[in-house]
Write a protein that binds this DNA or RNA. Sequence first.
DNA 1: ATGGGTGCAAATTGTTTGCATTTTA
DNA 2: TAAAATGCAAACAATTTGCACCCAT
Lengths: 122, 122
Amino acid sequence: MERQTPQRDAIRSLFTPDGDPLSPQELLEQASRDVPKLSIATVYRTIRSLEELGEIVPVELPGEPARYELAGKDHHHHFVCESCGRVFDVDACPGNLANMTPDGFKLTRHDITLYGLCGQCA
Amino acid sequence: MERQTPQRDAIRSLFTPDGDPLSPQELLEQASRDVPKLSIATVYRTIRSLEELGEIVPVELPGEPARYELAGKDHHHHFVCESCGRVFDVDACPGNLANMTPDGFKLTRHDITLYGLCGQCA
DNA sequence: ATGGGTGCAAATTGTTTGCATTTTA
DNA sequence: TAAAATGCAAACAATTTGCACCCAT
């Protein structure tokens, strides 16, 4: 089983139900406040562990390193602010995209990323 | 200006109107048939040059390195086969996604990636 | 001949891994 | 005190860059 350690707890606590997806670097910076000499290797190992346990899921955005967020959220997508770079959850979804799928292809899932300006930057 | 060289020509000729997006590694492999000791650095430099000239555009898919395709195609999206890994152009688009956009945010563009099985793998 | 292009190797960035050392249970 | 977790540095993969050399113009 997974042991409880200050490092793991600090990283784990950064994932909140309404938090936006976090990158490994952001996790390192923020968790380092609690555990000063936290290493990036531990961040990556903890990410993988939490992912395998099904507690968090990766958020892969085009052209940038993966971020992670709490698992179990309803189906949703993401909005990337082209000004400040922050990533926001978007609950809406256009729904069935089967009509976009080429003939003979089988659709299993889809990713949608919106780009523009967030409320603060707009 | 850009000079005409065997390397550049070999890489440039791999971009065709109906071709699917190509990764730097694929460009290296395929162009190497014409120019045996082509280096990966030249591939990347040529990609950047063609991109700055507006001849090609990057195709950024979630979680994998960028690919490139001819510029000037109509607005479209991509389908990634989860079995063979190939990437296909998809001409359809659900259209207006403004209704997905959070209040106060300004939408400028969007990316949609479909996942599933291609015609051959299905 | 001269300035841009190329190859090769070294540098960068993001991520993973080996290993000796802590730490939790 | 034994198994698991951590830190550090080395290893990797993708991409970029420095530099000496080469080739279009």
